[in-house]
Write a protein that binds this DNA or RNA. Structure first.
Lengths: 74, 74
DNA sequence: AAATCTGCGGTCACATAAGACCGCTATTTA
DNA sequence: TAAATAGCGGTCTTATGTGACCGCAGATTT
């Protein structure tokens, strides 16, 4: 373990992402189709397994049709 | 060039970051001291040279005393 | 029962952010 | 005029996110 642990933030982000996706009534594969991100990866993100990059946040927001800032509103 | 190009989004993020930093009257080194991120790296981020991770967005927000979402509000 | 959908876990090569440095050029100030 | 201060560019190693896959269990639909 070299750096700090960010799994808590990753989980918060993931929970928020999943909540928004459910609100939009989208399945993992449906969202995946909208944003060119593999569905298994979105699953991992929702479960707090990744410290994703800015570009991925942008893509997810696009696929969900929300503002990028909304994904960080938690 | 393997993936998409996100420099435009990186630049927008960087501009926004710099604007907020200036609003707070902080120098690169002052902000760096607040968030444990090297000042030269913050400079590069502000100039759109990095596709930073979620954890870095969180750290910058902490150092600037703003909400993470504010950094994506552009 | 069979087909489909949904969420999720794992693999592997590759690209790149992170982290910790150094040092230069201006500009400001003591 | 010397010394901080501010912005920025470059280097090197290491850690890890990305992208593209595969396959499975459980629920739902036909």
């Amino acid at each position: 373990m070299v750096g700090k642990d960010y799994t808590s933030i990753q989980k918060q982000f993931g929970d928020n992402l999943q909540k928004i996706r459910h609100n939009k009534g989208l399945s993992l594969r449906a969202l995946a189709a909208n944003c060119e991100i593999d569905d298994s990866k979105i699953s991992k993100i929702e479960n707090g397994k990744f410290n994703i990059k800015l570009s991925t946040i942008i893509e997810l927001a696009k696929g969900l049709e929300v503002k990028p800032a909304d994904l960080l509103d938690f």
